[in-house]
C-alpha cells in the first residue's frame, strides 16, 4: 500500500513549492543585515578616506553634556585639473572656489548659530572667552589640501575677520570652537 501512495504524495507536492527553506534563508539574511549593518546618518555617509593615525581612539558619542558637530572636508577635483574641496556641515555643502571666501563665511554663519544654542563654560586658559560644550569632528580627506583644513581651523577658532581674511583685532570677542576631533583610522584597519 505504502509503495502505491508514495508517488501520489510526491505528485501533490509539485503543485505547492516548499517555501520553508527559502523563508529560512531570507530570515537569516534579514537578521544579518539588521544586526551587522548600521544605518548611515547624513553627516557620516559621505565616503571620505581619512588619514591613518596610531593614537586614534573610538569616537565617544555619548560624552555627557557635550554635543558633537561634524564637518566634512572632501577632496574633489576642480574643473581646471587642480584639487578642489567641498566643506559640508549637516546638510549644507559649501564648494570652495579658488581664492574665494564665501564657503568659509557660510561655515562661520552656521557655527555662530551652533555657538548661540550651545551650553557654555569658561575658558580654563583665562582668556575671558566662553567656550561651547561642543566637540567639532573634522572628517577631512587625507588627500585634501592642507590649506583647506588650516583655514577651517581658523574659522573654528573665530580668529579671522572673514571680510578681509586677516586675523581679528579682538580675539576675545569671538565665538571660538576649540575642542576638535580629527577623524582618522588606525593604520592596520582594513575597512
Amino acid at each position: 500500500m505504502s509503495t502505491r501512495h508514495h508517488p501520489l504524495r510526491l505528485g501533490q507536492q509539485d503543485d505547492h513549492l516548499d517555501l520553508v527553506p527559502l523563508i529560512d534563508c531570507v530570515f537569516l539574511l534579514l537578521l544579518f543585515f539588521m544586526i551587522c549593518g548600521r544605518l548611515s546618518t547624513s553627516e557620516r555617509s559621505e565616503q571620505i578616506t581619512v588619514p591613518p593615525a596610531r593614537t586614534a581612539t573610538a569616537v565617544d558619542q555619548g560624552l555627557a553634556g557635550w554635543r558633537r558637530e561634524i564637518i566634512n572636508v572632501s577632496a574633489r577635483p576642480a574643473g581646471d585639473g587642480t584639487r578642489g574641496a567641498v566643506i559640508s556641515i549637516g546638510a549644507t555643502e559649501m564648494p570652495l572656489q579658488a581664492g574665494g571666501t564665501e564657503a568659509y563665511q557660510r561655515l562661520r554663519a552656521i557655527l555662530d548659530r551652533i555657538y548661540d544654542q550651545a551650553e557654555k563654560y569658561d575658558d580654563p586658559r583665562a582668556t575671558l572667552v566662553k567656550l561651547p560644550r561642543v566637540i567639532v569632528e573634522v572628517r577631512a580627506d587625507g588627500d585634501a589640501d592642507y590649506r583647506t583644513v588650516q583655514e577651517v581651523q581658523q574659522v573654528l577658532t573665530d580668529s579671522l575677520d572673514l571680510a578681509t581674511m586677516r586675523p581679528r583685532k579682538d580675539p576675545h570677542h569671538g565665538r571660538p570652537f576649540v575642542n576638535l576631533d580629527f577623524t582618522v583610522r588606525r593604520p592596520a584597519d582594513k575597512g
Binding site: T57, A58, P176, G191
Partner: peptide, 23 residues
C-alpha cells in the same frame, strides 16, 4: 536593509585643543 545599511569600520578620532589666544 540591504540598501540603507553601510558596512564601515567604527570611526576613530584624534583629539585636539585649538588655541584661543591668537593675537
Amino acid at each position: 536593509f540591504v540598501m540603507t545599511t553601510k558596512f564601515s569600520t567604527e570611526e576613530k578620532a584624534i583629539s585636539s585643543l585649538l588655541p584661543t589666544d591668537k593675537g
